[in-house]
């Protein structure tokens, strides 16, 4: 099965009217995501840019089938997140600051565990793990429990875990949060390498320089709504602003006109 050619119009991710409403402790509803529509294609890094609480994480969790949408749906790597959540999870790699590693297992045990649950044949799994150990230079610590690893080492094991099954779509939720300079640089190189490999990378961030440097297309989210979606040049043209921070401010200002 060639997953990269399996989606309609070649879109790796297509969100249609995606909504998520949480019910608060006192019974009131909170709309975290309101009718989100966007597309991302293979060989592209698509950024979701927005301040904290904009709805980026909720959107990515719905796309990863961790959360069920309240309304709308999305097709990810050819699978529907509402009707085929298991298939979605098989076709994506997901990484965020909150996807920790099992502290009492070694890196190799974690990779084996995920590989077995993905149903990767034993020999293929063994070879793939060795391949990832080489690719991400894990050899020195892959047999140590992850609780004793540095944050950079843990990050590398996490990346290996996310790409273990060679997913056509990679979803990264603020992947550089909490990383030092070197680990951040490694992460940026890794994301760029996935684009080169023809994969689709969906990336949420509130670091403007990261988005500017990496993303082919950027979607600006605010209060759960997509304010704009396009290449950086398209966004510049739409807002008449040069720098991304100015573009972002202009879009937010248009969405929330000052009260009289």
């Amino acid at each position: 099965m060639n997953l990269t050619n399996n989606s309609e119009n070649g879109a790796a991710v297509r969100a249609s009217g995606l909504c998520k409403t949480y019910r608060g402790p006192t019974g009131e509803d909170f709309e975290a995501v309101r009718g989100l529509e966007f597309e991302a294609t293979y060989g592209e890094i698509h950024g979701l840019l927005g301040p904290n609480g904009a709805g980026k994480t909720t959107t990515l969790r719905m796309l990863a089938s961790i959360l069920a949408p309240t309304a709308g749906t999305a097709i990810v790597a050819g699978a529907d997140v509402v009707r085929e959540p298991l298939e979605v999870r098989r076709r994506i790699g997901f990484l965020s600051a909150s996807t920790g590693l099992y502290a009492r297992l070694t890196g190799r045990e974690i990779l084996t565990y995920f590989g077995e649950l993905h149903g990767i044949p034993r020999e293929a799994l063994r070879a793939r793990i060795e391949e990832l150990i080489d690719a991400f230079e894990l050899a020195r610590f892959v047999d140590q429990r992850t609780e004793g690893l540095s944050s950079g080492q843990r990050q590398r094991v996490s990346i290996a875990r996310a790409v273990l099954h060679d997913p056509p779509v990679l979803i990264l939720d603020e992947p550089t949060t909490g990383l030092d300079i070197l680990a951040t640089s490694d992460m940026i190189d890794f994301v760029a390498s996935r684009r080169s490999a023809g994969r689709c990378v969906l990336l949420s961030t509130h670091v403007l320089s990261e988005a500017e440097r990496l993303c082919d297309r950027i979607g600006v989210i605010h209060h759960g709504r997509m304010l704009a979606d396009g290449t950086l040049d398209e966004l510049r043209a739409e807002t008449g602003r040069e720098f991304l921070d100015e573009v972002f401010r202009e879009l937010v200002a248009r969405a929330e006109p000052p009260s009289a």
Partner: peptide, 22 residues
């Protein structure tokens, strides 16, 4: 190593999953 090699495997059902998780 490509996805085709991985897709050849048998995806674990509920019982096999439970045993692996346990």
């Amino acid at each position: 190593m490509t996805r085709a090699a991985f897709d050849a495997g048998v995806r674990p059902g509920v019982r096999a999953t439970a045993l692996l998780v346990a």
